[in-house]
């Protein structure tokens, strides 16, 4: 994994968002070292599509989401929204693009200002952008609150008076109010109870249909990602592993890391006993000094010499399913991760 390439991108002009060779690095103090958060990642999104970004903590999925909206801008690479190169924009020009991209965060309570009324929190985007007059703004706020399932009559309350699930609904309303085309959802349901999580997932699905939104859905729970996504992109240590429609990819994961992620999910069925051999062993290598070649090779049961020498290129293994791996998993193959790490 840990591969690169752009073979999986759709022709220029078709995609609404096109991210090419994205690189994000952070310097580590004055040591001269740097954290390679995202390394040469490419993907695209067409209008109304949801792409799920998955991987373990530290794989660069949140950084990718933030780099797309230029918070902070990437070190190199290109991010094009409707053909406009965002990395070339600065100041006012970039500001003018911002209402078309919104973000929803993981912790619904800390992402809302506790001292402001819910109605004002949601209206803030309209005020900043001077969209409409006071009356039409109030009507718009009422409308979005209604659509996300918050009674507008409670708009005068403050965030602490709402539950976690309701605060996440308010965050969604805030994101919707400027009528964006793209919303980056960074682990929007990870902090919620399962029952509330289901409500929010359904709500995001409804919003997507109603407003024709494109979503980048970042999460570590593969079952949640499968439910919401049209295509899923698996990342490891800042690199592309695999991309495909979830129904296809989950049935036959081609990248050993995708297989490891799928095997690690606890299944709510007591008949299926967890198997220790199929649990991915070892720790994530340091992103300051990532392994050469394929970055997953240190934990991969299929790794050969070539994996250390040559980085795999992205290629189409089945229709629509793209993988960056020298030795993709065959359908039905079992992998012994426990013995891969010595």
């Amino acid at each position: 994994m840990a591969g690169s390439g752009t073979a999986h991108l759709r022709p220029d002009g078709e995609a609404m968002l096109r991210v090419e060779h994205l690189v994000v690095e952070f310097p580590v103090g004055r040591t001269g070292l740097k954290v390679n958060a995202v390394s040469d990642l490419s993907f695209d999104i067409v209008e109304g599509e949801t792409v799920g970004l998955v991987g373990e903590s530290g794989c660069g999925k949140s950084t990718t989401g933030r780099a797309v909206i230029q918070l902070p801008p990437p070190v190199s690479g290109s991010v094009k929204l409707d053909g406009v190169e965002l990395t070339d924009l600065h100041g006012e020009a970039l500001r003018q693009v911002r209402p078309r991209m919104q973000m929803i965060f993981q912790d619904p309570i800390s992402s809302l200002n506790p001292r402001r009324r819910v109605r004002d929190i949601v209206a803030e985007g309209l005020e900043i952008w001077e969209i409409g007059d006071e009356q039409s703004r109030a009507a718009k706020v009422e409308e979005v609150l209604e659509t996300v399932g918050i009674d507008p009559a409670n708009g005068g309350r403050r965030p602490h008076e709402f539950s976690g699930g309701q605060c996440q609904r308010i965050s969604i309303a805030r994101a919707l109010v400027t009528e964006p085309k793209l919303i980056i959802c960074d682990e929007p349901v990870s902090a919620l109870d399962v029952s509330v999580q289901a409500q929010i997932i359904n709500l995001l699905g409804d919003m997507r249909e109603k407003y024709g939104l494109a979503l980048v859905f970042i999460a570590h729970d593969l079952a949640v990602v499968k439910n919401v996504s049209d295509r899923v992109l698996v990342m490891y240590l800042g690199k592309f592993c695999e991309l495909g429609p979830p129904d296809v990819m989950y049935a036959n994961p081609a990248h050993p890391y995708t297989a490891a992620l799928l095997l690690a999910i606890p299944v709510p069925d007591p008949e299926i006993r967890p198997d220790s051999e199929q649990i991915l062993a070892g720790e994530l290598p340091s992103p300051m000094n990532p392994p050469s070649g394929c970055r997953f090779r240190t934990r991969c049961p299929k790794a050969q010499d070539i994996c250390a020498e040559q980085e795999p290129e992205v290629r189409e293994i089945r229709p629509q399913q793209w993988v960056a791996c020298h030795f993709p998993v065959e359908p039905g193959e079992t992998l012994d991760f426990a013995s891969a790490v010595t």
Binding site: I201, D221, V224, N227, V228, D247, L262
Partner: peptide, 19 residues
């Protein structure tokens, strides 16, 4: 509680049962 969990075996975009 059990039916509100998204399951890997389900197809994508199925509507989840909620409480």
């Amino acid at each position: 509680l059990l039916s509100s969990i998204p399951k890997l075996a389900d197809e994508s975009h199925v509507r989840l049962a909620t409480i």
